[in-house]
Design a binder for these strands. Structure first.
Lengths: 341, 341
DNA sequence: TAGAGGAGTGTAAACGTTTACAATACCGCG
DNA sequence: CGCGGTATTGTAAACGTTTACACTCCTCTA
């Protein structure tokens, strides 16, 4: 099967290998007649081009790498589905690199580039605050990189990106709690390093400030973006001397941990504590109670980011680098109620 | 960076390109002195081998493909983590193909092979009952394939596999329900095509038969392995004229849907209905109530299956094809109670 | 009918490695 | 000092494509 090369086809079809190559890749350059001859020979021999040789010759792997914090998080698997579908559409394969929530340094990205030879990279994870290294190292290398979900720091601003408006979305979530008469609202956020988390925290603080509500010391805690982290964070919140009536979580994964911990403490959701999540992963509607959360168009983000990358790969530096903001939506379920009732 | 080739290094180090290649790949074949010279030159030039050229020359992509039903299912993401860790260890990249629960045909696998040139394939999904096509097509091609999680049909028996004993595990789960005095036990299983599901169903039926308990018509329903499917299945079960007191689900994903639907119907878990799952995904301990389920060593399966594949790739047909059974474990949480109480 | 121009095809080089084989250098022994 | 043998290095071919360039036909125009 795969041991027959273009030479054999050329021999059978009685043409040169160049003509075979052309009838496959640029059919308009050959006669109808020879094209048919070649097609026949291909069918006879069961030839299929050696993609290794093609990649080598063309200098293209047709592989892109996506770097993400955690493959386990349903939000990212949803984004991945979008990426994969667009990739398949464009003839790319996708390899995944998981950062396990650690922040990437420029060197690590560099290492990934040389080891996994890829045509481009999609960053769904935070990169180190020393973003300049990457961007300068990269303007040198001019490697196509596009950023998804994560908010973009100034240093990376010359790369295209697609994400929601995290600040506005977080504000909307918190404003909803405020509209339900909550005044003591806490937040569980991700680790320091994540810009995206920082933005959501900023949205929370802005909403609180605009409503002239205080944010007490110890009301903003790090939940590590994991279930376990959120459970610990929730315990701290419940033991706070001025216990909040509502908790806003920076992602649904943590909201699930939070829900569980509140109930383990013998309290009710939403009767004693209201909870709001972020992402609208597919488990959000089957938690108990179903989770009120911010919905992101995860698959769409994935598709857009992949198409954006393709354009970058094809167009080189031509592709614009403006951030692309996609819409979010507050979806109201049953994890929030009025604290007075 | 990547535009400097081995030639440049050879020029700087004042040796031939063959020597450069050797000092990298077979250091024991060159003098200490030249090795150092070459190392220096590499550092000076920032050379790193062109992996495309290497792949081409060596006829190896160092890429493996894994075919799985659904990337979203946390069980599979856990298996993937194991695969990825082993792959990284061995210098392989991993690309994923999702079947979306459809059964694969031999042709489809063939197409994947020629389009994505890979060194091997890990099958975590069901393949079509016409397994002979694949195995014969493959003995021709002698492509390294190994099977994980899925039970192996007779036709595929010449490929290595690693999985738990699904029949025994399902029996154990059902026996546990029986030991808790349940007599009316239903099951939500996956689609027809999945052998793995068939085995779990077989385990269920065997346990029931051995305990001389009847399996009523309509007690074994298809839940599609999805949350939505399980909810619908659960609704049917709850409306059954002889309503079961316990439901055994073929995976945790469905158990989550089941839990939710039971509670939506105004019933309590486990007080009115007991529920048992399968897989022990990481959400299983934070459902309400925490889920009693069968735990599979998912990451370990992933690692073993990958190492197995490596051996197949290296050894050719040398590697044994005996199935490798890994241990499962019943983990008891709070979704089951005695129906009398 | 000569010549220009274009369409179709062939020849051969190139991509960056690895590796069989040849050549050279080095060592120890007689 | 010469010789055999081994350790190290160099030369060149090969992997399967793509593609620049050259060549051959053919057609159309003047």
């Amino acid at each position: 099967m795969s041991d027959v090369s273009i030479k054999e086809v050329a021999r059978i079809a009685d043409v040169s290998i160049a003509t075979v190559s052309r009838s496959i890749n640029n059919p308009e350059q050959v006669t109808e007649k020879t094209r048919l001859k070649v097609q026949d020979a291909i069918r006879q021999t069961g030839y299929s081009p050696n993609t290794l040789a093609q990649s080598f010759r063309r200098g293209r792997t047709n592989i892109v790498m996506v770097v993400l914090p955690s493959v386990g998080d349903p939000f990212f698997t949803a984004v991945m589905r979008g990426i994969r579908s667009a990739a398949k559409n464009k003839g790319y394969s996708v390899v995944i690199e998981e950062t396990q929530f650690n922040t990437l340094t420029a060197d690590e990205i560099g290492a990934m580039l040389v080891s996994n030879q890829t045509d481009g990279i999609i960053l769904l994870a935070s990169v180190s605050p020393f973003g300049t290294e990457i961007s300068s190292a990269n303007s040198k290398r001019r490697l196509p990189i596009v950023i998804g979900c994560e908010t973009v720091s100034r240093e990376l601003a010359d790369f295209p990106s697609v994400h929601i408006d995290n600040i506005a979305a977080a504000k909307e979530a918190v404003n909803y709690l405020i509209s339900q008469d909550h005044e003591r609202i806490a937040m569980i956020c991700g680790q320091e390093s994540s810009l995206l988390t920082k933005d959501r925290e900023l949205g929370y603080r802005t909403a609180m400030k605009q409503a002239k509500l205080p944010v007490e010391d110890g009301w903003v805690v790090d939940g590590d973006l994991t279930i376990a982290g959120a459970r610990k964070a929730t315990r701290n919140l419940l033991n706070h001397s001025n216990r909040p009536t509502a908790i806003f979580c920076a992602n649904d994964e943590m909201a699930i941990g939070c829900l569980h911990e509140v109930k383990s403490a013998g309290l009710g959701v939403p009767d004693d504590i209201s909870v709001v999540g972020f992402d609208d992963i597919r488990y959000a509607e089957v938690t108990d109670p179903p989770l009120t959360t911010i919905s992101q168009p995860a698959e769409e983000i994935g598709e857009r980011v992949m198409y954006r990358l393709c354009r970058r790969i094809d167009a080189g530096n031509g592709e614009s680098s403006s951030p692309e903001i996609v819409p979010h939506k507050l979806v109201i379920r049953q994890s929030v109620t009025n604290p007075a009732s």
